[in-house]
Design a protein around this nucleic acid. Structure first.
Lengths: 244, 244
DNA sequence: AAGTGGTCTAGACCACTAC
DNA sequence: TAGTGGTCTAGACCACTTA
């Protein structure tokens, strides 16, 4: 991450920190004009910073009254570990700031199935990498991930690269960033492999996340199927039922 | 719906229509300054309108180059049905267009627990309805839902209303709509009650969704805890991996 | 160098809430 | 009536892409 020192991002992060530290006991934030004054930035910038927190479900606003902290955020911040839109998925997956270890389970090139052809906009007889990996945090296996990437997009992929971050690799090698995805989330009973690799009891389930990841020019880059240890499937999101 | 005639929403909808009608064959939209001119609004307003479309995955921007239409949007708009809308939650819960049957399991008024006081912005000694319902589709039990609603918001609630749609009721009775929610989603092994009510085998899990629903003025309206039959827990969303 | 999107400002005016 | 968030403007300046 560039970690730019944009003003609104700085304000946003600072507010988040102050919220987490319980500074606003009344659950009410200072009004926008005061914040504009204290941060020495324009009110527009305050609004933008707050807008991110609203999208993340951390705060909400009541016109005429003020800005309030979402009680759920204070109650169970772990549910916000992925913070709505900013799900750190697959390559950039992080838990408590620590990058998971990766074990390569399988790595080969296969002919794209009809489904993959559709999802990745491939023609018949095009090929994809099939990459199966196990990610662990603190020796706790967390995700079994099977990814499919068209060889024509990353013809230079190697087994070595695949054991770290593919997203970083394509960013560095080609200057193209992965910045959007479509995700679908569900749950199901664990199968034998899940139980084996994720150290699950037979009655414990897995979360299933299927995603299509896009490059910044809109090209579908990867289809990924993930089985998550159920304790790590926690998705918090703010849903605005308007705006369409 | 108020369907306000906000400028940025008008621009947003107009752009979406023009995109759908294939007006921009080159996949490139006019630049922001031109649009500002042609719509006779400020560039900021153009940016805001476009921001909504970016969030919806319909367009994407490349600094220095321009604004482009996501090819996936033109090829398969159905994949873009978009978030909350199909989520189908609680009252508006729908599966394949069919409204589920509701069985009332429990209905009483209790003193708000400290946790509920916090989530619903209640003072001590305020009361809430506790409503436990089982929803079924085609005789298949799907959701065990326990909801908590402050009596002061809907003092006229009855057992009869509770067996259909509370959201519709408050909309009709008070003209207030539920239009925002914060949801947290996870999964866990089913307990005895889950297995009994949802007809689950011991190894089959439940999806757990906890939500706070807000009225259009920002008032927290309901806290809901749902146990879903795992086959009906499916959440799809667009994720922007930037901004954090 | 020209064009395009990104950030930020300073302020006007509106809509709603609380007292 | 005072306070708060919402919308919109007009414009400055920056960063990146393309040529």
């Amino acid at each position: 991450m560039p970690m730019a020192d944009l003003v609104y991002q700085h304000v946003m992060r600072d507010l988040k920190t102050r919220i987490r530290h319980g500074e606003f006991k009344t659950k009410k934030l200072p009004d926008e004009r005061s914040l504009s004054e204290s941060y020495q930035v324009s009110r527009s910038t305050i609004k933008r910073a707050m807008g991110v927190l609203v999208d993340q479900g951390i705060i909400f606003k009541k016109r005429g009254s003020g800005t309030f902290i979402n009680p759920l955020y204070l109650k169970d911040q772990s549910a916000f570990r992925y913070e709505g839109k900013n799900l750190g998925i697959t390559d950039s997956f992080q838990i408590d700031g620590e990058r998971p270890k990766i074990k390569l389970l399988d790595y080969q090139v296969i002919r794209a199935t009809p489904e993959l052809q559709q999802d990745l906009f491939l023609k018949e007889d095009e090929f994809v990498y099939q990459i199966k990996r196990l990610r662990s945090v603190d020796d706790q296996p967390v995700i079994i991930e099977t990814g499919y990437i068209p060889i024509k997009i990353v013809p230079t992929l190697t087994a070595e690269v695949v054991q770290s971050s593919i997203f970083n690799y394509i960013q560095e090698a080609q200057g193209r960033a992965v910045n959007k995805s479509f995700l679908s989330i569900r749950a199901q009973p664990s199968n034998a492999e899940d139980q084996d690799l994720l150290a699950l009891a037979p009655n414990e389930p897995v979360g299933v996340m299927e995603g299509i990841f896009f490059l910044d020019d809109g090209t579908p880059f990867e289809v990924s199927n993930m089985h998550l240890h159920y304790k790590y499937l926690k998705y918090g999101t703010f849903v605005n039922l308007n705006e369409d």
